Measured scan of single mutants.
Amino acid sequence: MTYKLILNGKTLKGETTTEAVDAATAEKVFKQYANDNGVDGEWTYDDATKTFTVTE
């Protein structure tokens, strides 16, 4: 399945996607991606759209 991440960081905004077997796996990938890019904030997940959002 394809999962999407929306980044609403103070210095980085954008979107990315990943292929993962489940939401938990996608979340690990996205949290590492956000961490690597210096984005740390509040996370939400919408199962209907398979979209994670992180907002600083």
Rank of each mutant, 00 (worst) to 15 (best):
T44R: 11
T25S: 13
V21C: 05
A34Y: 02
Y45L: 02
A23F: 12
I6V: 11
E15F: 10
L7S: 03
Y3K: 00
T55K: 06
W43Q: 01
L7M: 15
A26L: 01
K10S: 12
E56Q: 07
D40V: 13
N35T: 12
E15A: 07
Y45E: 00
G41M: 02
W43I: 03
E27Y: 14
T25N: 15
L5D: 01
K4F: 07
V29D: 05
I6P: 00
T25M: 15
E15H: 07
A26I: 01
D22N: 11
D22A: 03
F52S: 00
E15L: 04
D46N: 10
A48L: 15
T2K: 11
T18Y: 10
A34W: 03
G38K: 09
Y33R: 03
D47T: 10
L12W: 13
V29N: 05
T16D: 04
V39G: 02
A48K: 10
L12M: 13
K50Q: 12
G9A: 09
I6Q: 06
Q32D: 09
V54L: 08
K10Q: 13
T53K: 06
D47M: 09
T17K: 12
T53G: 03
A48S: 15
E15N: 04
V21E: 14
I6R: 06
T44I: 15
E19N: 09
D36Q: 15
E27G: 12
Q32H: 07
T51E: 05
E42L: 15
L12F: 15
T18L: 15
T17C: 06
K13H: 13
M1I: 08
D40P: 04
D36A: 10
V39C: 05
T11C: 06
G9F: 13
G38R: 08
K50W: 08
A23G: 04
N8F: 06
N37M: 10
T55W: 08
K28H: 13
V39H: 04
F30A: 01
G9V: 07
K10W: 08
V39S: 03
V39W: 09
G9I: 11
L12I: 07
G14E: 09
L12D: 06
T18M: 07
A34T: 07
V54A: 03
W43L: 03
D36C: 05
V21H: 09
A34Q: 02
V21F: 10
Y3H: 03
K31W: 11
T44A: 09
T49Q: 07
A20F: 04
G14V: 11
K28T: 12
K13L: 11
T51Y: 03
F52T: 00
K4H: 10
K28Y: 09
A20G: 04
Y33N: 02
K50M: 08
T2V: 11
D46S: 07
V21T: 12
E27L: 14
K31Q: 15
A24Q: 13
Y45V: 02
T44D: 06
K10M: 13
L12V: 11
K50N: 15
A48Y: 10
N37C: 06
T2R: 06
T49E: 08
N37V: 10
Q32K: 15
V21M: 15
T2L: 13
Y3I: 02
T18A: 08
N35K: 12
N35F: 15
K13T: 10
T53E: 06
A48F: 13
D22E: 05
L7F: 14
V29A: 15
T17F: 12
F52R: 00
T16G: 04
K50C: 05
T53Q: 08
D22G: 04
N35W: 13
K4M: 08
D40M: 12
E15D: 07
V29L: 14
T18G: 03
V21D: 08
Q32G: 07
K50H: 13
T11I: 14
T18V: 11
V29H: 09
T18I: 14
F52M: 02
T2S: 10
A24M: 10
Y45P: 00
G14P: 05
T17Q: 12
D46V: 06
T55D: 08
Q32T: 09
G41D: 02
K50L: 15
K13S: 11
D36S: 13
A23N: 07
K31E: 04
D47C: 05
Q32A: 15
L12R: 04
K4W: 10
T11E: 12
E15V: 08
A34N: 02
A26C: 02
K4R: 13
Y45T: 01
T49F: 06
W43K: 00
G9D: 03
L12P: 03
A26T: 01
D47S: 15
A24F: 09
T16C: 06
T16A: 14
L12G: 14
Y33D: 02
G41W: 10
T2N: 08
V39K: 02
A24P: 11
K31V: 08
D47L: 06
T44H: 12
Y33I: 10
G9S: 13
Y45M: 02
D36W: 07
T55L: 10
T55N: 12
F30G: 00
G38A: 09
F52Q: 00
Y45I: 02
K4T: 12
K10C: 07
T25K: 09
A34H: 01
N8T: 10
K13Y: 10
E27V: 08
Y33Q: 03
T44V: 10
F52K: 00
T11W: 14
W43R: 00
T2M: 10
M1D: 15
T51V: 10
V54Y: 03
T25Y: 11
T2Q: 13
T11L: 11
K4L: 10
T2Y: 08
E42Y: 09
N35G: 11
V39Q: 04
A26Q: 01
T17G: 04
G41R: 01
I6C: 05
T53S: 08
T55A: 05
V54P: 00
D22C: 04
F52Y: 08
Y33G: 01
Q32F: 06
G9Q: 04
E56V: 06
D36F: 13
T51R: 03
E27R: 09
T25A: 15
E19V: 12
K50G: 08
K10T: 15
E56F: 10
G14N: 09
A48M: 11
A26S: 03
K50A: 08
I6N: 05
T18K: 04
L7E: 01
K10H: 13
K31F: 07
T17H: 15
T2I: 11
T55S: 14
K28P: 03
G9K: 04
T17P: 02
L12T: 14
E19W: 10
E19H: 12
T49G: 05
V39Y: 08
E42K: 14
T2C: 05
V21N: 15
T44F: 11
T17Y: 15
E42V: 13
N8E: 10
Y33A: 03
V39E: 03
T51S: 05
E27P: 00
Y45Q: 01
D46E: 09
A26K: 01
T16H: 14
Q32C: 05
Q32E: 14
G38P: 02
N35Y: 14
I6W: 04
G14C: 06
K10L: 07
L7G: 02
T2E: 15
K31H: 13
A26W: 01
L5S: 00
T55P: 01
M1H: 07
V21L: 14
Y45N: 01
Y45D: 00
E19Q: 13
V29G: 04
D40E: 09
A20H: 02
F30H: 01
L5W: 02
V54D: 01
D22H: 05
T55E: 11
G9Y: 07
K13G: 06
G14S: 14
D47F: 13
E42F: 10
V21Q: 07
T49L: 13
T49R: 07
G9P: 03
M1N: 13
T44C: 05
L7C: 06
E42W: 09
L5K: 00
V29Y: 15
D36N: 12
L5E: 01
L12E: 10
E42C: 06
E19P: 05
E42G: 07
D40T: 07
K13C: 06
T25I: 10
A23I: 07
